[in-house]
Design a protein around this nucleic acid. Structure first.
Lengths: 337, 337
DNA sequence: GCCATTAGCTAAAACGTTTTAGCAGTTTTT
DNA sequence: AAAAACTGCTAAAACGTTTTAGCTAATGGC
């Protein structure tokens, strides 16, 4: 384990040229700096021969750019965020960046700790899924001279770029679909986060219910804690079904999957009574019987736009003007209702 | 965006002390270097006041340690690898490390490119899910003075640490379970990778079939290309069912999910005829009806052991001795057979 | 009161790059 | 033939840390 990596100086010594020249050649700046083709070729060959690999730590220190984008999601093990990570990885690599990630577990202190870790690692930009009660931390982050784009959700009170799905539209479409199918009384299940995505989904649901003759009397909304899925979901489901709800509206994949499992265990056959719809489109929805009707978020679009925005902010931070980008997803109709 | 981050020199200037002193204090080396408590306190307070954040690029350059672990999986969007990433993130953070990831898409050239990127970023160690035809690249990597642990699979021909599931045992258990349930003719579906995990799963399957009176005559094995799932799976399924197979054995979650979807679309009710089992335990398996009997890999154990191994190799690379660690998973019996 | 020890600190090199000013020749322009 | 412009390169500073040798002053032992 003693073998050291070759560095510019090693190549320079071998060829008896200056370190600067080697650097110029290998970073593709030969032309602008009038390096002769002959020398340039020699350097390139020798570098290959010696297995030269640039030290990005050194380059980053010197240039002030690490080439790293920090990504903070709620939980990378959640397939929704896993997909996000993947699309972001792809997009970032197209513009020569790489991704460090961290999972906040919807916990503002973890989020803040990740932010600080990423700052100390000199990431060039951050892509963040904000969590509840993190406003102060996010405002603090806003003071830093580094581009940030929020994804999946936004946070009122902090003016920053956002790329996310049209949660209102999604919930509206899902609700209307249920009503069209003739379900009369509907129970919704949402997380207790006072975050844009949740709030918009509730609003969309309620807007959809407004079409119903008896309006909000025909629905119930159960609010569940992110860390309390196990304990709170079963009682909430029972209560909702007891009330006579004929259809269930799940505001995200975690709640839906857990609920379907619970219903399965209780021997309640989903599909007719109760019917159900959900946000997100995990694999499980196309494999379960019946398949679950859902609103699939345009994850790829969100991610590619988010990375593009990052790029624009890095490249010309002066002229760039903030924007909230909201993208419609797709209603996928299966047999669960 | 002009505000620069405070650095050691800024604190030093404010307090009229040397940069070295500030560094020693803030990196917790006051005691060994006999810094007076008074001065140390002053430095700590001033650092907090000025919002000092260490520059890990600079530190890394100087110390030769980046504090980063490189993780290469096949696809972070696959929930199996997503879970892996999450456990590794957790374990790494316990020992003060952070994770950069990359997805190889089972492509050796992408894998190699990621390895080189990580090397140039001076990662302190790599956790790699090897792919087929990557032996040469992996041998090349072995020459580098950096700890590597392979996870999920190993690669014959490269002597390195490995943490993975007992694929042979898993396949054996799944097969025996099918036979015990009275299924007579069984079709297996595996990827075409000549990788340890696949090979061991096939071996385990065949070992299980050896218990059957008519032995290997009672089974068929379909080999599917990773990039060809869409095109190859449906014909393979039809052919297998045509042959009279009463049960299906899927060697991983991607194949299983895709197959179940295809079967659903064709209106073939899984559960009795055909019965089925699969490797891995994605959410979908507990949500589908019937639930899918499967062999769940001990992902958490694999990851925690992998990171511990990394740590040991970093800390005392001299004495460390290589090992292949194989962990048994758990047979989860549901209603699909 | 002298030498040895200790306490508390500083100065400076080093890590591996990038980048710029400018030097010495050569060629072109006038 | 002198001035100007260009060619091809080098030297050296800078990025923000860590770390070590060593300096000065105070303390202790006798």
């Amino acid at each position: 384990m003693v073998r050291r990596q070759t560095k510019l100086a090693d190549i320079a010594r071998e060829l008896d040229v200056s370190v600067g020249l080697v650097s110029l050649v290998l970073s593709g700046k030969s032309k602008e700096n009038r390096i002769s083709d002959a020398k340039a070729q020699k350097v390139i060959l020798k570098a290959r021969e010696m297995g030269y690999q640039i030290n990005q730590l050194a380059r980053g220190l010197r240039t002030g750019r690490s080439g790293i984008i920090g990504l903070i999601v709620a939980d990378i093990a959640n397939p929704f965020f896993g997909k996000m990570a993947r699309f972001i990885e792809n997009e970032a690599s197209k513009i020569g960046y790489h991704v460090m990630f961290g999972s906040s577990d919807e916990n503002p202190d973890k989020l803040n700790s990740l932010i600080n870790i990423f700052l100390s690692r000199q990431v060039d930009a951050m892509l963040i899924v904000p969590v509840k009660n993190s406003l102060d931390y996010l405002l603090e982050l806003k003071k830093q001279p580094i581009p940030v784009v929020y994804i999946d959700r936004y946070c009122d009170g902090v003016d920053e770029d956002v790329c996310c799905a049209d949660n209102y539209d999604g919930a509206l479409q899902l609700t209307r679909h249920l009503l069209k199918k003739g379900y009369d009384k509907i129970g919704a299940f949402v997380l207790d986060d006072v975050l844009s995505n949740n709030i918009d989904r509730i609003k969309g649901f309620q807007a959809g219910m407004a079409d119903h003759p008896s309006g909000s009397n025909a629905c119930s909304v159960s609010v569940i804690g992110y860390d309390e899925l196990e304990s709170q979901l079963k009682p909430a489901l029972l209560k909702t079904l007891d009330k006579g709800c004929e259809a269930l509206f799940f505001a995200n994949n975690s709640i839906a999957l857990k609920s379907i499992q619970i219903l399965n265990e209780m021997g309640i056959a989903i599909g007719e009574d109760p019917g159900l719809v959900s946000f997100d489109n995990p694999d499980a929805f196309s494999v379960s019987t019946p398949g679950v009707t859902c609103y699939e978020q345009p994850i790829e679009l969100i991610c590619s736009r988010a990375v593009k925005t990052i790029y624009e902010k890095i490249e010309n931070s002066e002229e760039y003007v903030m924007e909230r980008r909201i993208y419609k997803g797709e209603l996928i109709i299966r047999n669960s209702c």
